[in-house]
Structures are given as C-alpha cells and as structure tokens.
Amino acid sequence: MDLDQKTLLNLYKTMTTIRHFEERGIPETGQRQMSASVHSSAGQEAVPTGVCAHLTVDDYIGSTHRGHGHCIAKGVDPKLMMAELFGRATGTNQGKGGSMHIADMSKGMLGTNGVVAASVPLAVGAALTSKLRKLGRVAVAFFGDGGANQGVLHESMNLASVWKLPVIFCCENNGYAESTPVEYGLSVANVADRAAGYDMPGFTVDGMDVFAVYEAAGQAVARARAGEGPTLLECRTYRFYGHTVFDNPLSYRTKEEEDIWRARDPLKQFRERVVPEGIITAEELDRLDQEAEDLMEEAIRFADDSPMPELSELYQDVYVDYPLDMMRRGVNMAD
C-alpha cells in the first residue's frame, strides 16, 4: 500500500463519519420530522470517500437523493446536516431543503437532488464555469444505476465530451433503482461500457474497496485537471438498507445477497487490509469510530437545541428580489 498514514486515516475517518451519520441520524430524524424522503447510503461509503479525497474545497460536486455521504466527503459539517434533517433554522439550508437538497456552496457542494440525475448538468455547468474562468477546478457528477438510464445524463456526457470539460461522471451502481434490479433496466453489462459512446474513458471498479475507488478516481481527476476531458467511473456498491427508511428491501432481494455484500462492508475491509500490514493500529481506527459516534451525539444535541425556522421564512429566498405581496396576495393565509 503506497498511501501515507495521514491519507489512510482521513479515508477511514470520512467513511466512519458517513456510517455513523446514517446509522444515528436517520432514525433520529424519523422520530422528529417523520420524513419519508431520507435515503441511507450506509454500505456505499467507499465511493464518495475515495472520489472526494482527490478534491479541494473549491472543486464542485453534484449529488443525488442518497447524498449524505457526498456531503460529508466534500467537507460539509455533519452538525449542520443533522440540523437540516431535523428541519432547523441552523441547518445547511436553514431547514428549507432537508435530506434531498442539502447544499453548501462554500464547499462546492451543489446540492443533493430529489430528481434522479438532475444534478448532472449542474456539475457540467460548474465545470464550464471553471473552464471559462480558468479556475482549475473539476466537477464530479454523482448518480446511481437508476440515473444511468436518464436522458439528461447521456446528453450531459456528450456535451462534456464535445466541450472537453473537467467532469467526472461517477456512477454509484448499488444494484437497485428503488426496487428495480440494475440488470432489468440497464441495456449493457456495465454502466461504464457506455463511455465508449461518448469517447471518454470508462472504468468499472469495486465500490466496496476504497483503495480501488481512490486509485481510479485519482486518474479521472488528474485527466480532468489536465484539460483532457471527462471520465465515466462506475463503482459497484450496495446499500445496506432499503430505498428509503420505509421499504423492506427483502421484498425484492434476498437475505443471502445482503449477507454477501455486508461481509464486504467497506469499513470492515479497510480494517482487514490496513491493520495486518501494521500501518495503522486497530485502536487508532476504534478511536476514529468513537470520535464519529461522539460527533453524532453532539450533532443531535446541536440540532435539538436549534430553533425551528421563523414562519416568515416561508416567503424568503424564493427570489433574490420579488414583491412579497405577489407571493401571498389573495391566498387567504391564516394570519
């Protein structure tokens, strides 16, 4: 393994922070906000971690409905994310977005997105900004195997290719588009096979192995930074839970399959690989797990102690500038 200890610790820290956010934050959100629209990325941590490790704070990412991991890996504060999930005024989006719209423009995080593949052209546009203004930034467009079949993705890959934009199209192929198995909806064996249609390199890697993701993403990001254009990177991964908190995944997949993938847990694999080599001790990783656990307790406390948005916020930030009167006139609001 040629990664230094600091890089390794950072990779694990990101993964365990994501895991703890999903495992603690989602049930706690359910108790408070009763939202059906929260999607756990537990199991998929290696993908955002391995990709975003190559990005600076100024680079851009566009994300999906299953985007908590992307946010954390891009440096968004989990406390502010928790507050957002709880619908609090202190949230990343002041409580007006929730899980499917978490954004932090100061971190180049262009939003998780509730419409499948809809953030992809936003990332392409951010890459265009970078190219036109010579900012040297790259943009990663995350999407899933469901998003792989959306027209806007294909248009975006073509556009990024003909304009040679610094984009990494990163498919998190977790095997299921809601309940639909990937092999039912995908015309090719690998999402990455489609790269050929857009004259860009395509790779399929083990998305449960953070080192495989890290290595492939490193090449894709380097290519983008060098002005050589986009890459399609497919990461084979698995979500440990259902599509949302409410569906039972065993209605469309088997326990045996889940067990096989759970045995390939990216955090567990990391330990099994790194600790025997003596680069990092099990105790150091345990300490990172404990820190993540403590951070979630702190985040939950922070969110619970935060105020709900003022009711007047209903009308704020629809526009930069628009007559308030037009938003409420004649609707007989109860005030």
Binding site: M105, P121, L122, V124, G125, A126, L128, V152, E155, N158
Partner: peptide, 15 residues
Amino acid sequence: AAFVGAAIGAASTGM
C-alpha cells in the same frame, strides 16, 4: 436538457 441544465449550473457558480 444538458445545455439548459449546464447554463443553470454555470449561473449558480459565478457566470
């Protein structure tokens, strides 16, 4: 879809 989306992405990042 791509270029309208890309224009929106560019507009939200400084253009």
